[in-house]
Structures are given as structure tokens and as C-alpha cells.
Write a protein that binds this DNA or RNA. Structure first.
Lengths: 169, 169
DNA sequence: GAAATCTCCATGCATTTGCATATAATGCTA
DNA sequence: TAGCATTATATGCAAATGCATGGAGATTTC
């Protein structure tokens, strides 16, 4: 395996830094508006997208690229706040279904305008349309599964779909 | 402020996911090779780049986009391992200088081949030269300071330089 | 069809992070 | 130059994360 070229190293370094900077900014906006961390929003949105508002933890984990134990506890907290509900999975007692509550839907709707504004501020307003296109395209390729990757906890099943309304993260 | 277009939302979502996936992969490679987390490497590299191998915590914080308290404790751990050394800052008793030790330099050198291979695997090998160029360019613009951003803890002074040898993160 | 294996989710414990605040030194202002 | 604001770093405490493992239930194997 060749070593990475300089530009690859630069791109990687900037990917880390940009994600940190933008994430810190956006999380800061949400917090300041009195909202929970972005991961809560991600869960709510994934659930809301489903016609029945339900998903198994396993599915959520793969969508969000979250560690299993991490998600388990995140759901604990969200359930404690009444945003989601754990219900039994018919036909398999190991599994469960996470269902978004009305309160969860309400929170998602209230967060979105703030989140959207932050995305526009930290991402949209900094790039041209073409640059955004190219960025999205390149990142999609980074997300593509790779046979060479060793067995790893995250990033197993990735998809590359687009967004609408408040489809984010 | 307009809301973000769909493609902007997609790009942001993928930025988060790609960074998570790639970071998890690369961190996994390092861990498996018995090395400490990437943040340790970042510190070592920033210090090593300086002619005198020294930097103040404040400077490190800004280079790495790390929280102050977070860096303070990271340096505690690294100092405990003998990788860096805290020395007084001449002329200002509030400050200090963090100096990389010989052991720190050695660790950095040993990590680099593993890290480089991982970068190539998770980033370089997935994109064409042109795509990498475009990605680096777009991310640079995301990192550019923005007057509209509210006073935030991170991301104050950002620069956009390139890489060489083992100049990463 | 029983045992071994695998899948899904939870949890105890250590580490790390986040948040607020402390401590100490410097710089500024009147 | 006394008082007050500001800067640099550290730290107590709570929350979140990582890691290893547990335990229950499904699936496979022979």
C-alpha cells in the first residue's frame, strides 16, 4: 500500500478540523436555544421518517453510526424524557422497537428551525452550490463500504440518500 | 437568513457520518497497533513541528480545536507518560510551555507509518486526485472564520496550510 | 433436539468529557 | 498605584463514553 499523498493528508486533517469546528458551532447554537445534543435529534428524525415511527435499536445504530452501548444509554435518557418508548418486537423477544412519542415529534419540529439556520450559517453560506455538490459527492465516496476495512464496530451498512424538509444527519 | 438547500443538508449529514466512520476506522487501526488515541498524536506532531519542540497550551488548543480543560488533562496524561514536559514560560508566570520529550518524538515516529497507512486506506484510496483536491478546498472554506458566528469556545484562529512528511491533523 | 453458537440489548466499571468555577498572574484605567 | 477586568491554566463534580462482559433468546449443527 502506497503512503498517502500530501493532499490526501491535508484533506484528512481538514476533515477532522472542519467537522470539529462546525459541529461545535452547531451544537452551541442548539444548546443556547435550550435544546438537547444533536444525537437526540438524529434519533428523533430517524424514527419520524418511518411511516410507523418505529425502528429497532440495531437499525438506529447502523443509521447513526453509533456504538451499541452508547445508543442503549441514549435511549434510556430519551425514554426517561418521554421522547421515545420501548415496545416489544413481535416474534423475537431479544429485540425491541423504539417508537417516537408525540412529545418526541414535537421536539423534533421545534428543533428543526434552529438546526436548519445553523447548517446554513456554518455550511451553506460558506460554499457555492457547486462546491456543496462536490463536497457531498466526495463524502459519499468516503462513506462507501470498503472490503479492505477490517472487521470494525461501526460503519457496516451505509447508504447514501439525500435530504428533504428536515431530513438531516 | 434563507434555510439551507437540500444539497447543503445532505452535505452536512455526510460530513458528520463520514468523519465518524473514517475516524472510527483510523482510531481502530491505531488502537489495534497498541497506540494511544489520535489526539495524543496531534499534540506530539504539533510540538514536533516547532523548531524548539515547544508550544503553549493556548496555542495547542487553537491548533487542535480542543477545549481548554480537555487539553489541560490530556497534557496531564501525556506528561505522566513522559511524552511531554511542562516548563515555565519566561516572562509570564501564568503561561507555560509544553515541550516534547525524546520519548514523545520516538512515539510520534512509530505511530506515523500506521497512521499513514490508515489514511490512505480510508481516504486516499477512495477518491481520485481531483476529488481529494476539491474536498480539501471545500473543507478549507468551511474552516474559514465567519463574522456571523457567535462567540464560541472553539475555532477562533484557523489557518489553512498543507502537509508534508508526517504532517497530519 | 440438545448443545454450541450467534444475535440483540443491557450494565458495571474505568476513562474521558463537559460545565462551572477556582486560582493565579497580567494588563488596564482612573 | 489601587482597583478591576482579563488572560492562562487547573479542578471538583456530574454526565457521557469506551470496554468488557452478562444474560436472554434465537439459530445452527450434528
Amino acid at each position: 500500500m502506497r503512503g498517502p499523498s500530501e493532499i490526501v493528508i491535508t484533506a484528512w486533517a481538514r476533515l477532522v478540523r472542519a467537522q470539529r469546528a462546525v459541529m461545535a458551532g452547531i451544537e452551541g447554537e442548539l444548546k443556547q436555544a435550550g435544546f438537547p445534543p444533536l444525537s437526540w435529534y438524529d434519533v428523533l428524525l430517524e424514527l419520524k421518517r418511518r411511516p410507523d415511527g418505529r425502528l429497532t435499536p440495531r437499525e438506529l445504530e447502523q443509521e447513526m453510526l453509533f456504538e451499541q452501548y452508547n445508543l442503549s444509554r441514549l435511549l434510556d435518557r430519551m425514554e426517561a424524557e418521554g421522547l421515545v418508548r420501548r415496545i416489544p418486537y413481535p416474534g423475537d423477544k431479544r429485540r425491541q422497537l423504539i417508537e417516537i412519542t408525540e412529545e418526541g415529534r414535537s421536539l423534533q419540529r421545534r428543533i428543526w428551525p434552529v438546526y436548519a439556520a445553523a447548517i446554513e450559517q456554518y455550511v451553506g453560506s460558506k460554499l457555492t452550490e457547486g462546491e456543496v455538490q462536490g463536497l457531498a459527492e466526495a463524502l459519499k465516496k468516503l462513506l462507501a463500504a470498503d472490503e479492505n476495512e477490517r472487521a470494525r464496530p461501526l460503519a457496516k451498512k451505509l447508504s447514501g440518500t439525500s435530504a428533504s424538509d428536515d431530513r438531516v444527519s
